[in-house]
Amino acid sequence: MAVPASKTELLAAIGTTFDKLTADLGQVPESRARESSLEGHAAGTVMSPADLVAYLLGWNELVLKWLDRDGRGEPVDFPETGFKWNQLGLLAQKFYRDYQSLDWRELLDRLTAAKERLVETISSRSNDELYGKPWYDKWTKGRMIQFNTSSPYANAQGRIRKWLKA
């Protein structure tokens, strides 16, 4: 899929990749959702399908936080307060812990709700706001959203599909 360059393309990418991901996540038996047998984000590590969903949920809710703070004219702590870009593994571990008390269905429902809030938030912004100027470093707001939504959805879908076949 081409890199989105407009609000319309971003919304389409999020919708398409999320639908494919949720179709595959729907095939994960609840009894195996916490089984740590899925290739992890760092080389040589493993995680569970629930950890993968927690990771996606964490990033979705973080992007919503960025957009909310930005919308109120407040500074945004990229990637997250207390974390640097070279500490994304630690941030992933935080996401796993943040959502470990949720069961499989709750995780999936929360991910869907976060994605729907993202779509609403993106839809309420102009194409110029999303793609007209850099927001973080050289990246536009739309590109930063895409980096942390549709791209990870596609990556996660590949991981889940491979895991389901194994």
Rank of each mutant, 00 (worst) to 15 (best):
T8V: 15
G73K: 12
A23L: 11
D70V: 01
L107M: 12
E61Y: 01
K20V: 07
L38E: 08
L57A: 06
K162A: 12
K141N: 00
V76N: 15
E39T: 12
L64H: 03
G82P: 09
F95R: 05
D77V: 12
V63T: 09
T16N: 00
F147L: 13
D68F: 10
W139N: 13
I145R: 07
V119Y: 01
S31E: 11
L164D: 10
F18K: 00
N155W: 02
L38I: 04
L57M: 08
G26R: 06
Y131C: 08
A13K: 01
W163Y: 09
I145D: 12
K141C: 05
S150F: 03
L107H: 05
F95H: 10
P4W: 07
R72G: 11
S150Y: 00
F83Q: 04
T112P: 12
Q100N: 13
L91P: 00
T149P: 05
Y96G: 12
L88I: 02
F95G: 04
L25H: 03
L11E: 04
K133H: 11
A33S: 15
A2G: 09
I145H: 02
L118S: 14
G73H: 10
T8P: 02
A23E: 15
G158R: 05
Y136C: 10
K115M: 07
T45W: 08
V3L: 07
R117H: 03
G26H: 03
L118N: 11
K141S: 01
R125F: 09
Y99S: 10
R159K: 09
W135P: 00
N86W: 11
A50F: 03
E80K: 03
W59R: 00
E74T: 12
Q93P: 01
K165F: 08
A114H: 08
W139V: 04
A50V: 05
K20W: 02
S48W: 07
A12N: 03
A43C: 07
S36I: 13
D68P: 01
L90A: 09
T81Y: 04
T140K: 07
V28G: 14
A114V: 11
A92F: 00
